[in-house]
Every structure is written in structure tokens, then in C-alpha cells.
Nucleic acid binder design. Sequence first.
DNA 1: CGAAAGGCTCTTTTT
DNA 2: GAGCCTTTCG
Length: 739
Amino acid sequence: MDILAELNPAQREAVEAIGGPVLILAGPGSGKTRVITHRVAYLIKVCRVNPRRIMAVTFTNKAAREMEARLEQLVSGSVGNITLGTFHAICARILRQDGKAINVSPRFVIYDAADQLSLIKRGMQEINIDPKQYAPAAVASVISAAKSQLLTPVDYVKQGHSYFEEIVSRTYERYQQLLEESNALDFDDLLMKAVRLFNKSPEVLSKYQSRYLHILVDEFQDTNTVQYELVKQLAGKHRNICVVGDPDQSIYSWRSADLRNILSFEKDYPDAKVVILEQNYRSTKMILDTASSVISANEQRKPKELWTDNETGEPVRVVETYTEQEEARFVVSEIERLVDLGESRLGDCAVMYRTNAQSRVIEEAFIRYGTPYKLVAGTRFYERREIKDVIAYFRLIHNPQDVVSLLRIINIPGRGIGQQTLAKLSEWAKSLGISQMEALQLLVEAKEREEIPEHSFSARTVRALTDFWNLMDGLSTSSRVLDLVALFDLVVGASGYQQYIQGGPDGEERWENILELRSVAREYQDLNPPEGLTAFLEKVSLVSDVDSLDETTDRVTLITLHQAKGLEFPIVFIVGMEERLLPHFRSFDDLAQMEEERRLCYVGITRAKRQVYLVYAFRRTLMGSSAVNQPSRFLDDIPRHLVSSPSWWQEGDRQVTEAIYSWNGNSYAGPPDSEPAVVAGKEAVPELKAGDHVKHAHFGPGVVVSCKDVNDDCEVVVAFDGQGVKRLLLSLAGLEKVD
DNA sequence: CGAAAGGCTCTTTTT
DNA sequence: GAGCCTTTCG
């Protein structure tokens, strides 16, 4: 297969420029992914570079997986030796391999944002800082930013001036100590310590520098200072570094991503070859023009002209609804309409929003209509309590020093070990200069020798504590011989966790989640005992929500604008196009942040191939209270000729009196004071009772479980054959009674 | 010690 | 509106 065929001249140039630094500026839909994969394939097939000597950094694990799959097709063979993954995953690997040089034990655990926050709270407590006065989350984000600038606690102290910075500084110091005692790294540490490793150990650096002949970085506009530093270090010897990005799609500055990285690349590498990809293959002219009109209002930006040979397409549709509920209903009914027309499938459609909180109302509407959807970040799987609990057991087995995990599960399920006991235990361990697990071990040994205890635990408490230690010790022992799945079953069984969770609220659902985690463990079953556990923990620590997005099922995708980066859909709905939401109110007092909101909007629009809907609600409930918001300022920048004339939304036979007004008419003509109009055309809806057999357009045949009257309507619970149990609204779901 | 209830705060985006 | 924390009582 000719790797250069099917590439346009600019793309081809980007693929063939293999000596020295290369900057590829790739507008949305310009075939960026294609260029990257073809470039790597070109290196392997044509330039005969050993895949082992190539590193490719992606933004998500999913992107890495996809790239690997495409590569294997292109080079028709294994590329297993290539280093491919996110910065975090690659750094974790480097640190496990060579971290010893800077005292990073290979058994470290990785703390996610929640673990980090809990440890910071603990640190603040220990040095008597009132969490009510200084929000731990705020302190956490400053510490994270400091780490992203490569500032250690010592460096940070030198910078601090304000009283708040003083507080942060002291917390940072204590927090870092706690991390070390726990043998844990947070996300920022993974990057920072890798850079530190390379600074401290020239041999290690040289090993990696020599190995990596070619380095590629995708989404370069979203890298931060540490990441760029790391790239510079790694590319220090061969200087074959290729970065790909688009400044207009930089949307992660809050994670310390620094747009200057991509803007100053040419200064850092004056001999860099720059390739600009401006032809868009994804969207219609109308969509592309809309996107351009929005983004060109940014001042701090290099002008760029995207163009396309695609057809003109339909105008963008701007729609006003009365409330967020109406907004959700509009989206679902419009999608159903499009599907009924036969030109689109559910899987073609995506609904995008600024904040995760917006997804709930949308989701409810989809459930009520019985329209299949997939929510990318629901209650994020790995953030669920039961999942974190079980993982904590594994982390503690893997690394007994892990304080966060210990405190998480020492009394889950309840073992009679309360706050008092834990405070004493912590104090006691501290006075002896040992970890809490080691203190527990002492307790066990003292008990076995029937010594008089030097602590003040009651006999009952001693029993509870020693029981727990024996449990964990037993699990550790087993972990050295059992495969991961067997260990999994042992952990949830022996700890009493299974019984605890099944007996609690939502027991079955939570248990299913745990089984889901068990199936992840199965992927590592074939590895030898210690490696299986390590690999499993690494995987569950570094997953992201988009990683699990499955594009093959025919369902509507519900996704945040951030997560949508890098994806494309024929039909895109952006909801919540309102001031205070998009742009988000947190960006109002800062031009740079406001421009980022605009880029976010741009990213959303440019995901679409065929049709874009920009939807906003006249009135919306935010943080518990309802308020009227202005339409987003970004709408003002779209020329009228790109927008369809004011649309009136009609839902089936139902005249929705409160629904749509002209988006540009500015004034709202007046909402109904009463409840929405009564559902019309109800006579077509069948009377149903429990036990009736029904049929649904998407879910197929099923049996009615229950019916409940709700405001002139009826909520029907139906068990569909093989599709699970769904809650539907009778008037909307289109259920058909079967005899 | 633990369950339950009440009160408080604060909401962006994520590897 | 929800999650977190604290308080209270058994």
C-alpha cells in the first residue's frame, strides 16, 4: 500500500518532513489524525525506523488505541514496540522503570483528583488550617498549577507573597510529605518527577534520548510547561520532534496548558518546518463559515483561513426554548424527527454541553421518550463509591503505605473503627515514626506475645484493628499466588464488601458495577501475580471517560464540549448557548478565559459534518434557583445569512405554547402563566396495565411492569426482552399494545 | 461507635 | 439540588 497516496499536498509534506523539528498546524477536520498515523507508518515502512524507537503522545488513551489500530492496518503488522500513550501513562512507565534514581519506588500508587483532595484536607488539618477559611479545592488547584510549572514546595515558598500563598505553601509542603509517606504520586507528580529524573540522572536521560529517534506529540496546544519540558528533554539528542495542534482548539488552560508552547515552538526550534493544514474535509460550508465567524472574534489569535470543497449545506439552526426541560424535549423530538425522515441514525447525533450538570435534564428527556443514548461521563464509573472502595483494597494490598486507601476502607464495611480510634492510631504511628499499617502490625505482634500494650486502645478496639490487619495481611499473601480474578473474588468476599454492598441501598446496581470492574480485572488474569495487579491498578488510575466511548452502537451521544474534542458527528446540538453557561460566568472577568470559552464553542461547532443546532433556554435553573439568561454573546457573531429563520417547534400533534421564539428578536413574547398545554392526541395512546405486552420502536417487545399516573399522563415501566427495564412516558414513548 | 437527620456550602471543564 | 460535614441520639 502506498502510504502517500490519498494525501493532499500539504498532508504529504507533513508526512514526508522527517528530519528535524516539525510543527503541523492543523485546523479542525483537516485530516490531522490521518497525517499523524501516516507519518508514523511512513517512518516504519519507508524509512525503516524500528517502531521501538518511536514515541507518540496522545491526549487520551482512546486516541492511542485508535492510532494503534490504524497503524496496524497501515503497516500490516505489529507495532507493539512503539511507545504510544498519554503523557501520564508514559511517565508512569518511565518512573516504574527508572524512578529509583530519584527515590521513587516502583510500587507507587497513583492518586486521582479525589484522593489528592482528601490528602490535602488531611494535610491542612494537621497544620491547623481551617478548611472553611481556605477551600481545600482552591489550595489543590494552586498546588497543581505550581507543579505544572515545575515548582517544588521549596521553589514555591520563594515565590509566595500573599497570605493565601503562605497558606498554600505550608499545605503544599505537608501534602508532599504525606504523598511520600504514602508512596504515592498524584497526576502532576507523574510528569514533574519524570522531568526531575531526567535532570538528576544524565545516564537515564541519555538512555531515553538515544532510544527515541522520533517523537510525535498530538494536541500540542493543550500541553503544559512540564510536558513541553519533557518533550524537549527527550528530543534533546536526535531533535526529530513533530508536534501537531491548533491554537484555536486550546481549551485546557485551567489544567495549566499553555498556549505559548505552540506559539513559541518556532522560537525554540528556529529550524522547524511549519506545515499548515487548512482544507477541511469534515463540515459543510455553512458550518465552517459559522465556526469561523465565531472564532475570528478572538483578538489574541493568528488569523487562519479554513476552506472546504464540501457542499454548502443547511443553515445553522438557532433555537430558543422556554426552560431547560423544553430544551431537552426539543432536542429529543428533533432527533426523533430526523431519524423518522430516514436520513439519519441515532448514532449520527451528539448533544454537547458546557457542564456535566446539564446532562441530567437531557438524560431524563431521553429516558422519557425511550430514545437510546450514551452518556460519556455519567457518574463517572471510576469515581463511584463502590468502585473506589474496591480499588482501595487493591491499592492497599499493592502498597501498604497508601494512607488514603487505608483510611477509605479500614471501616468499610463497618468494623467498629471510628474517628477516635483512627486519630489515636495516626498519633501513635507518628510518634513511632512508622506507617499506620506498620503500627497495626506492631499491635498484632504485641497481642500475640500477650504484652502489656503501650497504647490506650480498648480490648474491643484492639481486636477490631488486629482483625483488619490480619485480613489485609492474608490478602497480601494470597496476592502473591492467585491470579487477579481469583484475588478479586477473594477481596470482595473476605472483606465482607460484597455482602455490605448488596445489602445496602441500590445494592444490585452497585454490585453490577463491581462486576464490571471485575471484567476489567479479567484482562489481566493471564499475567503473573505481581504484574497483574500492578497493570490493573495502572489502568484504572489513568482511564478517562472518553476512553470507554463506544462508537459502534446506534445511540445518541451526550458529551461535554471538552470531551468532544477530536470527535466528529454528522449532527451536533450544542445546548445551553447562554451567557453564564457558555461563556461560563467564571470567565467573565478575564479576557484570556473568555477567549477560551469562545474556542470551546468553536470546537463544538466544528465537530459537525452536516447540521448544527445551537439551542438556548429563556429561563434555566442553575444551582437550585431559576434565572433568566441572555442568549450567548457568541450567537451575535454569526451573520444572519448563515442562520435559518426563527423556527417554531411543534411536538407531534401538540401545540407547545411556551416553546420557541425568534432568537434574534431579543424580547421574549411571554411565557404561559399556566402549566404547558395539555397533551393532545391522547386518544391514539393505548390504555395499559401491568402484564400487557407492548412493542417499542427501539427496544422491541416487552411486558408492562407498572403504570403510574403523572400530571395527565402515565409513567409506564416496561421490561423489554433483552433490553432491560425502562421508565417511559406513555404519551411520548410510542408504545404499541400487542395482543 | 454508628446511623440518621439537619444544615451548610458551592458548583467548569479532566489526565 | 446534591453532596459534604456536623450534630445528635441510641
